[in-house]
Computed example of a mutant assay.
Amino acid sequence: MSDKFVPAVEELRDALTSGGEPDVVLQEIADEYGLKSQALRNRAELAFGDLNTYGNRNKNVTDKIKAAVKKKEELEELVVLFREWRKDKIFHPRLEFLRDKYLVNEDNRKYLTDNA
């Protein structure tokens, strides 16, 4: 017999990440899988910690990841624009914006130097 808790906990994680109210989604998912809600809560709290704060904690991590991806994409765009400028002396207004935004940081200047 397979463990019903694994898919139930995964579904609960998805529901909490989507902003679901912990007590409501917990009861719905427990009923759907034929589990006692307290047992599902116990398993989920072992996996995720406090269910009342899980959605916000996960959102904060997601926001940080999105910001890091955006920064990486902008730095890559800066490298491309910088290469174009060096090669053809074509100045793009976005180059100035990205330069001012990112080249104040020594690590970013090194990244540009190493990749341009």
Score class of each variant (00 low, 15 high):
S18K: 14
D50E: 00
D14W: 13
E77Y: 00
E10M: 07
N58M: 14
E96A: 12
T62R: 15
A30H: 04
L16I: 00
L40Q: 05
E21D: 15
K110L: 12
Y102A: 03
A8P: 07
E11H: 11
Y54S: 06
T113D: 12
P93A: 01
R99F: 11
D14M: 15
G49K: 10
N56W: 13
N105K: 12
V69H: 00
G34H: 06
L95P: 10
K71E: 09
R41V: 11
E106H: 13
I65Y: 01
I90R: 02
S18V: 00
L95H: 08
P93W: 05
E11G: 02
Q27E: 15
I65N: 03
H92V: 00
K64P: 00
L78T: 07
L75K: 01
A30Y: 01
D50H: 06
L98Y: 02
I29F: 05
G19F: 09
R57A: 06
D3V: 04
R43E: 12
K87M: 07
T53M: 14
L26P: 04
R83L: 02
V6E: 10
G34C: 07
D23L: 11
D31H: 12
L26V: 10
E28T: 12
G49T: 01
V80E: 09
D50P: 02
Y54L: 06
L78K: 01
A8C: 04
F82K: 09
D107R: 12
E73K: 07
F97C: 07
N56T: 09
L78E: 02
H92M: 02
A15T: 04
A39K: 11
H92W: 03
N56L: 12
V69G: 00
G19I: 01
S2V: 13
I29L: 08
Y33Q: 06
L46V: 04
E10C: 05
N52T: 06
L103H: 09
N56S: 14
K64V: 08
F97G: 06
A68F: 01
P22A: 08
E76I: 10
N42F: 09
S18I: 05
D100F: 10
E96Q: 12
E32M: 12
K66F: 08
A68H: 03
L75D: 00
L16M: 03
D107K: 14
K59I: 02
L46M: 10
Y54D: 04
R13N: 06
A39I: 13
S2A: 09
G34Q: 09
D50I: 00
D100I: 06
G20D: 13
E96C: 07
A44C: 13
G55S: 12
R41L: 15
K101M: 09
F91N: 07
R43D: 03
E76C: 05
L103D: 09
E10R: 15
E21G: 09
S2D: 00
L78Y: 03
D50R: 13
A44T: 06
V104K: 14
K89F: 08
A30M: 06
F5R: 10
P93K: 02
Y102Q: 04
P93M: 00
